[in-house]
Amino acid sequence: MKIDLDTIKKISHLARLEFDAESADKMKKDMTQILDWVEQLNEVDTTGVEPLTTMSSEVNVMREDVTGEHLSHEAGLKNAPQRDADYFRVPKVLE
Protein backbone atom coordinates (compact mmCIF):
# COMPACT_ATOMS: atom_id res chain seq x y z
CA MET A 1 0.00 0.00 0.00
CA LYS A 2 1.46 3.32 -1.08
CA ILE A 3 1.33 6.16 1.40
CA ASP A 4 1.43 9.61 -0.15
CA LEU A 5 2.57 12.87 1.39
CA ASP A 6 -1.01 14.09 1.93
CA THR A 7 -1.70 11.05 4.09
CA ILE A 8 1.47 11.72 6.07
CA LYS A 9 0.31 15.32 6.56
CA LYS A 10 -3.12 14.26 7.74
CA ILE A 11 -1.83 11.59 10.12
CA SER A 12 0.85 13.84 11.56
CA HIS A 13 -1.73 16.54 12.15
CA LEU A 14 -4.05 14.08 13.93
CA ALA A 15 -1.09 12.91 16.04
CA ARG A 16 0.07 16.49 16.60
CA LEU A 17 3.51 15.70 15.17
CA GLU A 18 5.58 17.86 12.85
CA PHE A 19 8.02 16.69 10.19
CA ASP A 20 10.33 18.61 7.92
CA ALA A 21 10.38 17.62 4.23
CA GLU A 22 13.19 15.11 4.68
CA SER A 23 11.65 13.35 7.70
CA ALA A 24 8.25 13.32 6.05
CA ASP A 25 9.73 11.53 3.09
CA LYS A 26 11.43 8.98 5.35
CA MET A 27 8.20 8.52 7.29
CA LYS A 28 6.36 7.95 4.01
CA LYS A 29 8.74 5.12 3.13
CA ASP A 30 8.62 3.59 6.62
CA MET A 31 4.86 3.64 6.82
CA THR A 32 4.51 2.13 3.38
CA GLN A 33 6.80 -0.70 4.48
CA ILE A 34 4.92 -1.24 7.73
CA LEU A 35 1.58 -1.35 5.95
CA ASP A 36 2.91 -3.71 3.29
CA TRP A 37 4.10 -6.04 6.02
CA VAL A 38 0.78 -5.94 7.88
CA GLU A 39 -1.08 -6.37 4.60
CA GLN A 40 0.11 -9.96 4.48
CA LEU A 41 -2.71 -10.67 6.92
CA ASN A 42 -5.13 -10.06 4.05
CA GLU A 43 -4.03 -13.37 2.57
CA VAL A 44 -5.84 -15.22 5.35
CA ASP A 45 -9.50 -15.95 4.67
CA THR A 46 -11.38 -14.50 7.65
CA THR A 47 -14.90 -15.10 6.39
CA GLY A 48 -17.16 -15.73 9.36
CA VAL A 49 -14.48 -14.93 11.95
CA GLU A 50 -15.51 -12.35 14.57
CA PRO A 51 -13.00 -9.52 15.03
CA LEU A 52 -10.65 -10.12 17.93
CA THR A 53 -10.94 -7.25 20.39
CA THR A 54 -8.78 -8.49 23.26
CA MET A 55 -5.99 -11.00 23.60
CA SER A 56 -7.57 -12.55 26.65
CA SER A 57 -10.69 -14.69 26.62
CA GLU A 58 -11.82 -13.16 29.91
CA VAL A 59 -15.17 -11.39 30.04
CA ASN A 60 -16.95 -9.37 32.73
CA VAL A 61 -13.92 -8.24 34.66
CA MET A 62 -15.90 -5.66 36.55
CA ARG A 63 -15.94 -4.01 39.94
CA GLU A 64 -18.68 -2.99 42.33
CA ASP A 65 -19.61 0.67 42.55
CA VAL A 66 -17.46 1.50 45.55
CA THR A 67 -15.01 4.34 46.00
CA GLY A 68 -11.39 3.65 46.82
CA GLU A 69 -7.92 5.03 46.77
CA HIS A 70 -7.41 8.47 45.28
CA LEU A 71 -4.28 10.30 44.37
CA SER A 72 -3.64 13.15 46.72
CA HIS A 73 -4.11 16.59 45.17
CA GLU A 74 -0.34 17.19 45.36
CA ALA A 75 0.64 13.81 43.92
CA GLY A 76 -1.86 14.26 41.10
CA LEU A 77 -0.42 17.61 40.06
CA LYS A 78 3.18 16.53 40.54
CA ASN A 79 3.83 15.58 36.90
CA ALA A 80 1.98 18.51 35.41
CA PRO A 81 4.23 20.44 33.02
CA GLN A 82 2.61 23.58 34.38
CA ARG A 83 0.35 24.01 37.36
CA ASP A 84 -0.81 26.27 40.11
CA ALA A 85 -2.15 25.47 43.57
CA ASP A 86 -5.39 24.01 42.19
CA TYR A 87 -5.19 23.37 38.48
CA PHE A 88 -3.25 21.83 35.64
CA ARG A 89 -2.32 24.70 33.34
CA VAL A 90 -2.20 24.29 29.59
CA PRO A 91 -1.65 26.72 26.73
CA LYS A 92 -4.82 28.71 26.20
CA VAL A 93 -7.43 26.82 24.23
CA LEU A 94 -9.86 29.13 22.50
CA GLU A 95 -13.14 27.84 21.22
Binding site: G76, D84, Y87, F88, R89, K92, L94
Partner: peptide, 15 residues
Amino acid sequence: KSIHLAEEPDTLVDF
Protein backbone atom coordinates in the same frame (compact mmCIF):
# COMPACT_ATOMS: atom_id res chain seq x y z
CA LYS B 1 -13.38 20.58 32.77
CA SER B 2 -11.45 23.32 30.98
CA ILE B 3 -11.73 26.77 32.44
CA HIS B 4 -10.96 29.65 30.12
CA LEU B 5 -10.68 32.89 32.05
CA ALA B 6 -10.19 36.17 30.21
CA GLU B 7 -7.61 37.43 32.71
CA GLU B 8 -5.60 34.17 32.66
CA PRO B 9 -2.89 33.52 30.08
CA ASP B 10 -3.50 29.74 30.37
CA THR B 11 -6.43 27.39 30.27
CA LEU B 12 -7.01 25.74 33.66
CA VAL B 13 -7.96 22.08 33.79
CA ASP B 14 -9.83 20.23 36.54
CA PHE B 15 -9.99 16.45 36.15
